[in-house]
Design a protein around this nucleic acid. Structure first.
Lengths: 183, 183
DNA sequence: CCACGATGAGACAGTGACGTCTCATGCGGG
DNA sequence: CCCGCATGAGACGTCACTGTCTCATCGTGG
């Protein structure tokens, strides 16, 4: 009976990230509930999107905490972060692409905080000599988001195996595609 | 007087990739034309999206040809490809995220051909020993698209300088973020 | 200078999604 | 066992977008 609000939001994100013009009815069916129930819990489409944003921020705050970004090397922390982010990758994919949220230059405070944490992680890696300094933390942050979203889509479409999620992202982001001598 | 059809499509892609629910009126204003004119050239929203798809495929076919993917090493060819793709990066970003185009598993033939060319490039790099074999060509292809789109957005939002476009993508995709010993 | 073609602005009806409502169903707790 | 509450299905009016139309304007070529 009790509708799993977070699960509904996750299903909505999975659909909307691929078909952003989806109807409220389509969203409801994708989540396995009726349209009326969807409207009972989210006043409208805007409210739904804002709830998605809130859930995303909340989940990633938790993921960041669980990844213990301050422990060990930045590289190790980044791998933990990707692993923690996986369950909400589709949500991230939706939020990254749906930038109508950030209209009017009033970037959401929560996102700014997350951006700062990721940026700080890359900056720490640069200071410790583990991360290249010719790639800006801002770009590395964007690239991390982009690769997580891209991989989430690739998994959804069956082009990448779900079990390879963390490996594909971290290996590409950290090591790159080029085959080095020592590898 | 003469409306630049391709430029209108590019402006539309830049807007729609960030706000996929944008109105036809918003698209027209973003392109600097009237709504009536937009409708004169594109029968409707579907026709507009299909025109975007066609333009994207056409432009990237040309970009691929100009990049001469068969010449030199795969790494060199990839760098040329990214450079050639830059003018249409926003278009690619829209097409990659707007996967409602590919409903019903009837993937557009043109896209399949482009995918095949990129995949073949990575495969050649793997065979020649320049590209890692533990990252599948399918994933590398997706990652390339994703990074181009992500970088296009980052440039649009001012988080990455436009002049760094090619460098940021190729260096991250090929070399990764980790600082190697010999670098 | 004139005529033609394209464009922008606005009006107009049609349409489809939205948001709200009611009612019947079904599960769970008391 | 029965009551209560959440849900699903459907109906309904509203509204925003759509697609088409007309008309005035503009600049371009003849």
């Amino acid at each position: 009976m009790a509708m799993d609000r977070d699960q509904v939001l996750r299903d909505a994100a999975a659909l909307l990230s691929r078909k952003s013009t989806a109807t409220m009815d389509e969203v409801a069916r994708a989540a396995g509930i009726g349209r009326a129930t969807l409207h009972r819990h989210f006043a409208g489409r805007d409210a739904l999107v804002r709830a998605l944003e809130e859930l995303g921020i909340r989940e990633f705050e938790v993921a960041f905490d669980n990844a213990r970004l301050d422990e060990g090397t930045a590289v190790e922390a980044l791998k933990r972060l990707v692993a923690q982010a996986e369950p909400n990758a589709e949500l991230l994919a939706f939020l990254v692409t749906e930038n109508q949220l950030f209209e009017g230059d009033q970037v959401n405070e929560g996102w700014a905080r997350l951006d700062a944490r990721v940026g700080a992680l890359f900056r720490r890696g640069q200071q410790e000599g583990d991360i290249r300094i010719d790639l800006s933390p801002a770009w590395l942050t964007e690239a991390l988001y982009g690769l997580i979203g891209t991989c989430a889509w690739a998994v959804m479409d069956g082009r990448v195996a779900a079990k390879d999620f963390q490996y594909m992202i971290t290996e590409l982001l950290l090591g790159g595609a080029r085959r080095s001598v020592e590898q």
